[in-house]
Design a protein around this nucleic acid. Structure first.
Lengths: 144, 144
DNA sequence: CTTGATGCAAATGGTTTGCATGTTT
DNA sequence: AAACATGCAAACCATTTGCATCAAG
């Protein structure tokens, strides 16, 4: 099954699986979609959700994110320390993070294709990386 | 500077940098070395350290691990949820983890060379990945 | 009406911090 | 002696959980 990358697909999948569609789930999905490719933490998402639905509790956000991640609709990103962030599973992308200045370079999902091919050839492994973080030094920090 | 992969090199580096060599630092390094390529958490390390030095406090382990990581001697691994784990920076290696059965395939550090080359060419980014985890399906789970 | 989702408050786990004291250089 | 590392206890943050209530199917 291809990965979901918008609200309608997500809702459709949930319906197909007989899962319940609640206000919290719909609103969380809408906010993830609205943040388009950004990495939103549970807290950040909660703020946005609260603006329109003050009755939705933070713990519900956590449970909802957990649920949607378990369903394969969202993926969670854990960049080093700090809180987890979430985006649609269909928005696969990767990051190069500079250990010097913290700059983040966004990398297309094709960046790792050579590695994926190699894993397939050598190990029969079908890699499906939704979010990799690779550390190093950016051009400026190498020079400086 | 090449990455450290044993106690002596680590101590030498610290000495060269004018950093202090304390009991805690030495013992932590010894335990990381003794665990050879395993992923030890701060807590696991603390247990081992306590066996010989009951006076070394858990908070000191955390501070020491932080210090050694900051010095580039150790790297910290954050696999999904749960506590961080540590190993020598010189023991770079990567994992392919099967989402089906949980099997872990260990990958040599050269696996990502094509990607590293590409980042250098396209972004001037000097990647230094010490520990990547790539998810997917292993041969058996693809077939099954 | 049944099953599962939610609000709330309280607990948890991992990690960090302030401060007085002890150790390394 | 000066600078820094440590023990301890308390704080912290992100996240999870128990339980009574509420909503979706």
């Amino acid at each position: 099954m291809a990965h979901v990358h918008d609200v309608d697909q997500a809702l459709e999948q949930l319906r197909a699986e007989g899962e319940r569609i609640t206000t919290a789930r719909r609103v969380v999905l809408e906010q993830v979609a609205a943040a388009h490719r950004q990495h939103l933490t549970a807290e950040a998402l909660a703020e946005r959700v609260e603006a329109q639905h003050p009755d939705i509790h933070l713990s519900t956000i956590y449970r909802t994110l957990d649920f949607l991640t378990g369903a394969g609709i969202l993926v969670d990103v854990r960049m080093g320390r700090g809180p987890a962030a979430y985006h649609f599973a269909g928005d696969a992308h990767h990051h190069a993070v500079c250990s010097g200045c913290g700059q983040v370079i966004e990398l297309g999902s094709e960046t790792f294709d050579p590695v994926i091919r190699r894993l397939a050839d050598e190990h029969g492994f079908e890699a499906d990386p939704s979010h990799l973080v690779i550390r190093g030094l950016c051009r400026d920090c190498r020079a400086g």
